[in-house]
Nucleic acid binder design. Structure first.
Ligand SMILES: [Mn+2]
Ligand SMILES: [Mn+2]
Ligand SMILES: [Mn+2]
Ligand SMILES: [Mn+2]
Lengths: 218, 218
DNA sequence: AACTATTTTTAGACTTGCCTAAAAATTAAA
DNA sequence: TTTAATTTTTAGGCAAGTCTAAAAATAGTT
């Protein structure tokens, strides 16, 4: 059984393993977990002793199969709980992350299995992030963002890459929620801000906002 | 915010505060939490510094209003989660305690409030234990046990005083579940074992079993 | 290639929660 | 009421996880 802290380290390493081919650097982990590089080095040694990561001094860290498996199972729990909070307890999508950060560390295989069933085996969480299956398989998004769409193109919102409350609340206020169909009317060359149609409304959004919205082309 | 460990100490102290008028002794707490008396002394000092308990050397410990309030809120969460696990996820009543021991430490007022609503504001948990309301009011059982009933008397099962899996599974196997109506047919003078009717069935149960069943007289 | 800036690791220390062993206080027994 | 048994506290130490400051390694730049 792993501690709360160990699980958070594995999750952080997993998050950046997918983004770079090399080992995840000490500083990146420290940044993600809001801690110090020296603390990360300490913990990495411990995880290495437990054969959950492979570690070579100064060369960053990679997950072993077992480490990866734990990380994915924590992510699975996080996302399932988020679905529960939104679907069953009527939380808003910007309110659930912090609670799920706690719930993801509850240890009980049976609980996860039953929760999954209770929620009708959801494939995506409230932010459009894919939920790993019970065997640890995880689909990845295509990662086309709204900022990639050309003028005149249509798409549907399938996810967000940024989870801050302010961003999510903003999106909701302009009806840019999961499933919304949009069309790009215009793009300003200078700052890449966009004019888009959402249903019968038209809004202007910054590049900062559009590049964090994952879309599926229509 | 209090740690997982602090909450468990407060809960343990609360449990025995109701049973004795004086302060709860170090050894009783150590026993309840499966730890050593010296560890208890350490933690009591810390809780005393935080004004959650009143502590006089060698005189045991009592909860302050704030300490009691935290203990009751943890118990409230424990029992609400047990209801959730049984009512929504179809766990058996002997399977939920350990998971609730973890879930009771999730910190979120809003979560508890919504969970309570989602469960239709239950008044009792799956073991018949009363659920404190959101203001910390806690009803107590009358504490009449099956072993208190005289020959010929009828009663209904409203709770259990012992929560071990083996006891709960045994009760279930003979249909001695919450709500079951029973009648005392006979009591053996020698060992106080009982013959009782449950519906159309008749069973013999030991005094050890009958004294842990809370009943309401009919 | 040598110097500089950045990243990473080490060294040493702190807090929390726990332990064992021994001392002190309380309670029970003679 | 002295002695013995029990309970409780103190003293000292350990593991986990964290921190700061300093040393070592790597990467970047003339
Ligand atoms: Mn989240
Ligand atoms: Mn999410
Ligand atoms: Mn319980
Ligand atoms: Mn219960």
């Amino acid at each position: 059984m792993n501690t709360y802290t160990e699980e958070n380290y594995l999750k952080a390493i997993f998050k950046y393993s997918n983004k770079t081919k090399e080992g995840v650097s000490t500083n990146v982990i420290a940044d993600e977990l809001d801690t110090k590089a020296s603390s990360v080095t300490d913990m990495i040694k411990k995880l290495s002793d437990k054969k959950l990561v492979i570690y070579k001094k100064y060369k960053g860290v990679t997950l072993t199969n077992e480490g990866r498996s734990i990380a994915v199972s924590v992510i699975r729990k996080h996302r399932l709980w988020e679905v529960f909070l939104v679907e069953k307890l009527d939380f808003k999508w910007d309110e659930v992350h912090d609670i799920a950060e706690q719930l993801e560390h509850i240890h009980s295989e049976e609980l996860v299995k039953r929760l999954d069933t209770f929620l009708d085996n959801p494939k995506y969480d409230p932010h459009g992030d894919p939920i790993p299956d019970e065997y640890g398989n995880l689909q990845h998004h295509k990662d086309i963002t709204l900022s990639d769409l050309a003028i005149g193109k249509k798409g549907v919102i399938v996810g967000v890459k940024e989870h801050s409350t302010s961003y999510l609340k903003y999106l909701e206020s302009i009806n840019l929620v999961l499933g919304a169909e949009i069309k790009v009317n215009n793009i300003v060359d200078f700052d890449h801000s966009m004019s888009i149609s959402i249903g019968k409304n038209t809004v202007n959004i910054s590049n900062q906002a559009s590049k964090n919205l994952i879309v599926k082309k229509l």
